[in-house]
Amino acid sequence: MGMTSRERIMAVLRGKEPDRIPWSPLVGRYYVNSLEEQGIKLEDIAPREMAKTPALKRDVNLYEVEVVRHIGADIMYRHVNSYKLHYKNCKLINETRNGVRYEGFETPVGKIYSEHKKSGGTEFISKHLLENKKDIEVLTYVFRNAVVEPDYQDFYEFDEHIGDDGIATLTGPLTPIQLMLQFYVGVANTTYFLMDYKDEMENLFSEIHNLNRDIYRVMAESPAEVIITYEDTSTTVLSPAWYEQYCKKELDEYADIIHDYNKIFITHMCGKLSLLTDTLAEGKMDGIDSVCPPTTGDLEPGDALEETGKIIIGGLEPAALVRMNVEETREYTLEKLKQVGTGRNFILSTGDSTAYGTPLENLKAITRVIKEYGQFPLNL
């Protein structure tokens, strides 16, 4: 008798042998929202009344789970929250005026806020939270006065709904520099700030890191077994030197906290990684998620396994799956599977979120390939 999807995924993540290679595409709301354009009604995949709990009723959470179940893949559900943050002596800004969403903080040492606009259905940051040296001081105050509180309810709800068909994973906070690059400052100004205000920025990083450690302790004490931090690491925005200086030690500390509770720590790194593999091999994370081959990424799954020695999740370029037909998808999947040897320490997935408009039949074709050829150990 074969393993359940939950047993299969956890076997790989625990360094054991699965019955076959897990196939766990990253399905998010952008992909789910594109299915109607393909003539696929979400109600036909899962009736809305199937959502029995608040977490499943929120946004398109139900369909992010049920699309993966529908294509016959192993569910590895992402972005489950497990904590609340409370900011002492701070007033949170979260309001929308004239189509612009504002987020930020009012504090005794100043006020900071970001602006978010929409274009073509996509929201983007039109003004970052930090724009000058004074803003750095304000955000430092915010993090110094933040406290974390456990909140595991969403995990319990997703875990029960998924059952033996997979796992739910918690989302861990980013390293401080990645928080700046992705959300609070942007690539250009992060670079300038670290040149012009290095002491102030590193002091801010220290406060964020202290809070992050508290958050990871809360996650480690949760009922979840797997925690993923969505670093989005890529040498297109972060040099190997910066990774060494501002990410490696921090990620290792988070891994130590998670490992103290016998939990699994995965880093989501969906960009170009070929210049980082030696450093990643030294890291304490258990695995690397959303490893993407060319041209979006630059690391093939077989090379990632060999050069890092980590569990590798990924292997399929999302942009390629959009363009291909079913037969091309089948051949492409087999090509990637041939690279990974026996398939030990490997979970087949999309190298980041499944792209908007990807034909659903392509995802089903990958399921058929895995069921036909994916028995462990692979022999292709």
Rank of each mutant, 00 (worst) to 15 (best):
Y197S: 01
A320P: 00
V80I: 15
T122V: 12
L348K: 07
I162S: 07
A11K: 07
W242Q: 03
V237F: 15
S82V: 11
T329I: 13
G314H: 14
K336N: 07
H79K: 02
V147E: 14
W242A: 08
R6L: 13
Y254G: 00
F143R: 06
P293V: 03
Y184L: 06
E200G: 02
N94D: 15
A188Q: 06
E327Q: 14
L194V: 09
D19C: 00
N325L: 10
G271L: 14
I215S: 10
R48W: 12
A51V: 05
S126F: 13
R48L: 10
E221K: 12
N203H: 04
C270M: 02
N345D: 15
W23K: 02
E372H: 02
S353D: 14
P108L: 07
Y261T: 00
L194C: 13
G351H: 09
A304G: 04
Y246V: 11
N325K: 05
I347N: 07
W242Y: 11
H161T: 00
C292F: 03
I264E: 07
R97M: 12
K133G: 00
Q375G: 00
I45M: 14
N345V: 01
I162Q: 02
E64Y: 06
A304N: 02
E49H: 11
S24Y: 15
Y83K: 10
A146H: 13
A320R: 12
A46Y: 08
M219P: 04
K134P: 01
N325F: 11
F346W: 11
